[in-house]
């Protein structure tokens, strides 16, 4: 087992027009920390440069998307600027203050279990639960070990979207330790809000109930979206996670789930959040050691 993150060469990013008012840049077809950190570094830089005509700057897992006013900015000029930016940026030197958020999860909870059982006919393996299936295809002997792996190392928020507040997170371990699962053969028409699911190489938390195709692992008692901004940590934004944050999924029992849920519903719950000056180079060299430092910043 390797204990460093293998660097990925991003040899041929694609610059694509999205109609007359978007530019989409795919840094790599495959997911990697290199691709994500570069997407975050470039979009951060674009925000700081405050180019005229830029309307939206949205980093994604291994790509990013810009929306602009073509009356103010020609897409070809923007693309030239983006290519030049790429030359200037060295992601190993790029650092940011990352929030580290304790993220409690009741794995194998009764609510997502009930929903998944309703949709077995849309699943690759109707005779297993999503956790049993995911554990098996990733080479784990038991669901228990699988949950330990999923909650055993922190995960970077590599993209927020689909609907407001939904974080895609990517576990901060070498690729051979990363979990990979397919989405449902046919999406479910139902998913409980706050369900924690997995698709491709990403964990996602559903902010509200709705359709969904990710394998269901559990449910969190905490919110990622608070439209009325009642919880103290949502004072500035109705959405909790931001790209570049780190979520530390923590396995909890039903008793703790209920206790946290009660506080959330009372509007008094305060998230356990620490910060770290995230340094990609240190993380790449020794992810295990670095992850320990990350989790130490939590109370």
């Amino acid at each position: 087992m390797t204990n460093s993150i293998q660097r990925q060469e991003l040899s041929s990013p694609r610059y694509e027009y999205g109609g007359d008012d978007h530019v989409f840049v795919e840094l790599s077809e495959e997911m990697s920390f290199d691709a994500n950190f570069e997407a975050q570094a470039i979009t951060q830089e674009i925000r700081e440069r405050d180019l005229p005509g830029i309307i939206e700057v949205a980093p994604a897992n291994a790509s990013y998307l810009l929306h602009f006013d073509p009356g103010e900015l020609h897409p070809d000029d923007l693309i030239e600027e983006l290519k030049a930016l790429r030359e200037e940026i060295d992601i190993t030197e790029y650092t940011w203050e990352a929030r580290v958020i304790d993220f409690p999860v009741l794995y194998d909870d009764p609510w997502t279990h009930e929903v998944m059982m309703k949709f077995r006919d849309r699943h690759q393996d109707p005779d297993s639960t999503d956790l049993e299936y995911s554990a098996r295809i990733n080479g784990f002997d038991s669901v228990d070990e699988f949950i330990d792996a999923h909650s055993g190392a922190p995960q970077m928020v590599t993209m927020v979207g689909f609907v407001p507040g939904l974080p895609w997170t990517f576990q901060m371990v070498p690729r051979e330790q990363q979990i990979e699962v397919p989405k449902y053969v046919q999406p479910r028409t139902e998913t409980p809000g706050r369900a924690v699911g997995y698709g491709g190489a990403f964990t996602a938390t559903y902010p509200v109930k709705g359709a969904g195709g990710y394998q269901l692992f559990g449910r969190t008692p905490v919110e990622v979206l608070d439209v009325d901004q009642e919880l103290p940590d949502f004072q500035d934004s109705m959405v909790l996670p931001n790209p570049g944050d780190i979520l530390n999924y923590r396995r909890i029992d039903r008793e703790e789930y209920d206790a946290i849920r009660e506080e959330v519903e009372a509007g008094t719950y305060e998230y356990n959040i620490g910060t770290i000056d995230f340094r990609p180079e240190e993380f790449f060299e020794d992810p295990q050691g670095y992850n320990e430092r990350i989790t130490e910043v939590l109370d």
């Binding site: 990013y64 689909f162 990517f170 397919p182 698709g199 491709g200």
Partner: peptide
């Protein structure tokens, strides 16, 4: 399929969608 995209040929590593795409 590239790492992280999932096995369906219409799947890609999750990315941003322009309005109108």
């Amino acid at each position: 399929q590239p790492f992280g995209a999932g096995p369906d040929p219409t799947n890609v590593v999750d990315l941003g969608y322009p309005v109108g795409s």
